[in-house]
């Protein structure tokens, strides 16, 4: 039986492999699942085998983790040129690797890097690319990758296939798949691949990086508290920040709140901002226009507080309170403070 070869693009941050890259391995491993067998990992005898190969650009402290979490093989690009994201250098290396490996499928996360390198690469490969998929299945009969993604702001889902081109390429939405556990009994196979330095020249040079303060970054927040137009003015936005602080949450905002200058753009969630997938998303004073829903409706749980009982946001919420946020938020913050004070006593 034919082997189905899947390449995934891993990413690192300060030498640590990011969780999205482990999620990609879960995506790759689940490609052959059918609706009935969903969740089962044991491959039946009729199923073709999957071979999952992770490409890891840049030096990483623990490349073997990719094997522990589902990769059969790691191609580690250890030259200095791969330390930062230089699209031309990445493209050259990936084209070489694809030429050698001839994969059926190539996956990356829909991160800033993934969303840049994948179209940059697909043009050269003359193949299709589907962005930000929320479901992927490999149809054994036809050999086609069925790529499902939200369209029209997430109100319609579209399933897409690649009709020509040798490699079927997709980026997948971060945080929409559980990170696979690390199993150190799995076999480790790491190849350090080097290229002639003259092939790795780039017109782009990396100069420096400044990290956001903790809490400013939304992409790994477990809870996000977002505020919208209902906050009425800039100083009221502090209520959102204070609530976020007591919940250990990231701060998000609707486009209106950002456009009014209440908070900066990196916090904006929605079609013209970020797509977030936290465990809990709390929308406060946000009516729930498609613009906003598109960026948050794949959160695991959604809570909303809005004064308008007909607000669209309630239709995507798991838990909602119809009421005045100026009455609710101060009390909620107060109760969270009390809870914290009580907690140490309870431990005793």
């Amino acid at each position: 039986m034919k082997k189905i070869k899947v390449l995934t693009l891993a990413e690192t941050s300060d030498g640590e492999i990011v969780s999205e890259s482990f999620e990609l391995l879960a995506w790759a491993r689940s490609l052959l699942e059918t609706e009935e067998s969903e969740g089962e990992s044991s491959a039946s005898s009729e199923k073709p085998q999957l071979e999952v190969i992770s490409i890891l650009p840049g030096k990483a402290h623990h490349p073997e983790e990719l094997c522990y979490r589902g990769a059969d093989r790691v191609i580690h690009l250890v030259q200095d040129e791969f330390q930062h994201f230089l699209p031309e250098v990445y493209r050259y290396a990936l084209l070489e690797i694809i030429e050698r490996e001839k994969p059926d499928v190539f996956l990356a996360s829909a991160t800033t890097t993934g969303r840049t390198i994948m179209p940059y690469l697909a043009s050269k490969l003359r193949t299709g690319l589907t962005a930000d998929c929320t479901k992927l299945r490999y149809d054994i009969e036809t050999g086609k990758l069925l790529q499902t993604r939200p369209a029209v702001g997430g109100n319609v889902m579209a399933t897409i296939k690649t009709v020509f081109g040798n490699v079927q390429m997709a980026t997948v939405r971060p945080n929409s798949m559980r990170t696979p556990d690390s199993d150190s009994s799995r076999m480790v196979q790491i190849e350090s691949l080097e290229f002639p330095p003259e092939k790795l020249r780039s017109k782009v040079r990396f100069l420096k990086r400044e990290d956001f303060d903790k809490g400013e970054s939304l992409h790994d927040a477990r809870i996000i508290v977002s505020g919208g137009k209902g906050l009425k003015k800039a100083e009221n936005f502090k209520l959102i920040e204070e609530l976020a602080k007591h919940l250990g949450a990231g701060v998000g905002a609707s486009r209106e709140a950002v456009d009014r200058g209440w908070i900066t753009y990196p916090h904006q969630v929605g079609l013209s901002g970020k797509t977030v997938t936290p465990e809990i998303y709390i929308a406060i004073g946000i009516s729930g226009a498609i613009q906003h829903l598109a960026g948050m409706q794949s959160a695991e749980s959604i809570i909303s507080i809005n004064i308008d009982p007909d607000a669209q946001i309630f239709s995507v919420s798991d838990f909602g309170i119809v009421g005045d946020l100026f009455e609710i938020l101060p009390r909620l913050i107060e109760k969270l403070k009390e809870r914290k004070k009580r907690a140490p006593e309870a431990e005793r």
């Binding site: 690319l129 069925l146 399933t159 239709s315 909602g320």
Partner: peptide, 21 residues
């Protein structure tokens, strides 16, 4: 190279509890 093969309405799995104090 890409072709839409199916369009469908996502299944909303949320069990909404909306309180109106």
């Amino acid at each position: 190279p890409t072709m839409v093969v199916k369009l469908f309405r996502p299944v909303v799995k949320r069990k909404s509890v909306i309180l109106k104090p």
